[in-house]
């Protein structure tokens, strides 16, 4: 059965691995330059305290490739679900060949196991290699830009894409199994996958681990922003003191009970008098410090790998549920 599944899968696999080779060549040619650039411009810059030019130059290098790679890893799991998962069984129904396949000397359960197993292995290999290459290529830029939790980057580096690909594949397969039509199954796989990613990004991931809190007293050097906001004059905290790679949920000026200062209080505490901006700032900070402190809620960068593992495990878990459903469905009296 494995040989037959491989025979049927060889064209899709060849296309994928061909594309992978092309991408590998492009990245192998351009990647070392980024490493050199990092070593020669960013590493020495810290000694003379002027890094902004060097980092900007680095993050701007090979811009189109950066955009392309991010886009590629965003869509590859969806493509796997649509073009590998959905047709894997829906095509058999559409062309009637399931009547040929399921009447050979192989039980339907085994047929399903091998088909899905092969699809999953191929998906893991393709996305795993792609993610590895992209993560390596981008590592100098990622080190400088330091936003590993950014939703745009978190899902296109390291382990997460592998989990997405497995989930998308079995989602497409199950849609094909139930609908028995390739095009609707492809569409369902796409919608389902995008929805799962969206729910994970927006609602689930921030709650996976309880965030840390850090409290700062307000003094002259406290990071405050003062200025006009759409709601009127306001004071907000900035996140100085937190590592650049941390994932900041919020930073607030609060009192012991957790309340923010009222606008009326701000108006009194932070006069926009005719004194200098520096004097205004000092007055404001002193007045606020009497009752308020700064509260930062965040995930430290050190939790990045924990989040990556969770992300992959959750999507693999979802995939396992879908696979269980497929095994029940394929054996049900049709």
């Amino acid at each position: 059965m494995i040989r037959f599944a491989a025979l049927q899968f060889r064209i899709q696999a060849a296309i994928a691995f061909g594309a992978l080779v092309v991408i590998a060549i492009v990245l192998a040619v351009t990647g070392p330059h980024l490493v050199t650039l990092y070593d020669t411009t960013v590493v020495p810059c810290s000694t003379h305290n002027d890094c902004s030019a060097a980092t900007t130059a680095l993050t701007d290098t090979d811009g189109p490739i950066q955009v392309f790679l991010t886009f590629l890893l965003l869509v590859v799991p969806a493509l796997i679900g649509m073009f590998w998962g959905a047709p894997l069984i829906a095509r058999e129904f559409e062309t009637g060949t399931y009547r040929l396949a399921w009447t050979q000397g192989v039980t339907r359960t085994r047929w399903l196991s091998v088909k899905l197993g092969m699809g999953v292995v191929a998906s893991v290999v393709v996305t795993g290699l792609l993610s590895l290459m992209v993560t390596w290529w981008s590592s100098p830029i990622d080190t400088v830009s330091a936003k590993p939790f950014d939703p745009l980057y978190f899902g296109v580096r390291d382990l997460a894409p592998v989990g997405y690909a497995i989930f998308a594949l079995v989602l497409g397969f199950s849609a094909g199994l139930v609908m028995r039509r390739t095009i609707p199954a492809m569409f369902t796989a796409l919608v389902g996958f995008v929805a799962a990613r969206f729910v994970m990004n927006s609602w689930m991931r921030p709650h996976l681990i309880a965030p840390l809190h850090r409290v700062y007293t307000i003094n002259g050097s406290s990071p405050l922003n003062m200025g006009e906001t759409p709601a009127g004059f306001g004071v907000t905290a900035t996140t100085r003191g937190i590592l650049p790679g941390d994932w900041v949920y919020s930073n607030q000026i609060v009192d012991k009970a957790g309340h923010s200062p009222t606008t009326a209080f701000i108006d009194r505490a932070c006069p926009l008098g005719h004194a200098s901006a520096q004097a205004n700032y000092q007055t404001c900070a002193t007045n606020l410090a009497a009752r308020f402190h700064l509260l930062v809620t965040y995930q430290p960068e050190s939790r990045y790998w924990t989040f990556q593992w969770y992300e992959m495990a959750i999507f693999i878990g979802l995939a396992a549920v879908v696979v269980g459903f497929c095994f029940v469905w394929i054996r049900r009296p049709s």
Binding site: I11, T97, T103
Partner: peptide, 10 residues
């Protein structure tokens, strides 16, 4: 089977 299905590409 009816219509004798076969894998067109094989």
């Amino acid at each position: 089977a009816q219509d004798t299905p076969a894998y067109a590409r094989l």
